[in-house]
């Protein structure tokens, strides 16, 4: 598990907005519901397509298929869940999850944050209140958190604790 310092306190955990997971969720829902429905209605429209002999085999393969879809769903969700930003009162931990076995973990001490800018990428982001946070740091490359829910509140919180930690350019 992620180890925090003795006096370190987690202020906020940021994950991408649920909207970024919606597309995958809809696809998985269709994959999960579609084939069982097709198999159930097929005997009504094509009475000779599924004979009694292949009936058990078809349902056996359907159960295996649903297990595979369920596992793929869990895998996709875990990648979404592990791709996170953890803001503590001392640092910002960025875990970029690119697949199950590939991730980049970086840390920024709050006192090194120089500036934070917000980008709202479009209509849906405006309506659902999410955006991209670009964090400029002293001596390091910029960090970007994409599709942050309630990005204005997140920005204010990071700036507030960065000032307390001694950030001078804010």
């Amino acid at each position: 598990m992620i180890q925090l310092g003795t006096n370190e306190r987690v202020l906020l955990v940021i994950r991408r907005h649920w909207f970024s997971f919606l597309g995958a969720l809809v696809i998985f829902a269709l994959l999960f519901v579609g084939p069982p429905l097709a198999l159930l209605v097929t005997p009504y429209y094509l009475p000779f397509a599924i004979t009694e002999e292949v009936h058990a085999v078809a349902f056996f393969l359907l159960a295996l298929y649903l297990m595979a879809v369920l596992t793929a769903m869990l895998l996709t969700w875990s990648i979404y869940y592990l791709d996170t930003w953890i803001i503590t009162d001392q640092r910002l931990i960025d875990i970029d999850q690119h697949g199950l076995f590939r991730r980049d973990i970086s840390e920024i001490p709050l006192e090194r944050i120089q500036n934070i800018s917000i980008e709202i990428p479009g209509f849906i982001a405006t309506v659902l209140h999410f955006g991209n946070l670009k964090i400029q740091t002293a001596g390091e490359s910029d960090f970007t958190i994409v599709e942050v829910p309630d990005c204005y509140e997140a920005k204010e919180l990071i700036l507030q604790y960065s000032r307390r930690a001694g950030g001078k350019n804010l």
């Binding site: 598990m1 987690v10 869990l74 875990s78 869940y81 592990l82 999850q97 076995f101």
Partner: peptide, 28 residues
């Protein structure tokens, strides 16, 4: 194959989440 994938997922969820989080446990 599924057992391998799920074992890897549980390992990563345990290793890279904060202590005390129950969402991952509930989903698994």
């Amino acid at each position: 194959v599924e057992a391998f994938i799920v074992a890897a997922i549980i390992y990563h969820l345990r290793k890279y989440t904060l202590p005390g989080w129950t969402v991952a446990r509930t989903v698994v």
